[in-house]
């Protein structure tokens, strides 16, 4: 009996000690076209040599959850292993006619819209499975979008640590301060996934965030 209690105690202590070092599930969430896949690609390419998915100017390019297992991120002498989970952009509306503006045929546009709606549902379902989440926002867009607020609210309700990334800082209209003002309770890191700007600070913030995993 005593042996069993001791065994369980040590098992719990050691699993807690090492849980943060094994394939932490890192989700990328945000509205469509904010650059979730671009950022995930940049990280995966840097540390595994392979990308996670394709990117496009047409919204809802990512319509299924995409994974990359065992991505070891190394920065400034630290290293951590993550399971990267890139999710479809969350939206409240999807109109196939919007895709046709990109010279897409009606049939293809309808198909894309159908897949995109299913992608949003899937992304919401996956919220429960994340250890920590990077919410990727376009720094040139209005941050007070209800989708952003809903995503962050749901992560907080699930006690999942959140880091906000203000992507596309290379754009003329980018305004990180606006994002910081909208979400004053969270760390905001300004980056450009396209040009790889400020990724060291992003990695530092990721390592810091992993300590908040419960």
């Amino acid at each position: 009996m005593v042996m069993k209690i001791l065994k369980n105690f040590f098992k719990r202590v050691f699993s807690n000690l090492f849980k943060n070092r094994k394939n932490i599930k890192l989700g990328f969430y945000g509205p469509p076209n904010a650059g979730k896949t671009s950022l995930a690609n940049r990280i995966c390419k840097d540390f595994t040599g392979e990308e996670i998915g394709t990117v496009s100017k047409i919204p809802h390019e990512t319509r299924k959850i995409q994974f990359k297992e065992k991505v070891e991120i190394k920065s400034k002498g630290k290293a951590m292993v993550f399971k990267m989970i890139d999710t479809p952009g969350i939206a409240t509306k999807i109109d196939y006619e919007d895709f046709m503006k990109y010279r897409m045929k009606k049939k293809d546009a309808k198909n894309r819209a159908k897949e995109a709606t299913q992608g949003v549902i899937e992304a919401i379902k996956w919220l429960d499975d994340m250890d920590m989440v990077v919410v990727v926002l376009d720094a040139s867009e209005n941050p007070y979008n209800q989708v952003n607020i809903t995503i962050i609210g749901n992560l907080v309700a699930r006690k999942i640590p959140v880091l906000i990334v203000a992507n596309k800082v290379d754009l003329k209209d980018a305004d990180i301060k606006k994002i910081e003002a909208a979400f004053p309770e969270y760390d905001v890191v300004g980056i450009s996934a396209k040009y790889g700007t400020n990724l060291e600070e992003f990695y530092e913030s990721i390592f810091k965030l992993s300590k908040k995993i419960k």
């Binding site: 709606t117 949003v120 379902k125």
Partner: peptide, 15 residues
């Protein structure tokens, strides 16, 4: 907040 997420999910299913 959970209902907001469900509203979005149900909206997508409705589309």
């Amino acid at each position: 907040t959970e209902e907001e997420a469900r509203l979005i999910g149900d909206t997508m299913a409705m589309i």
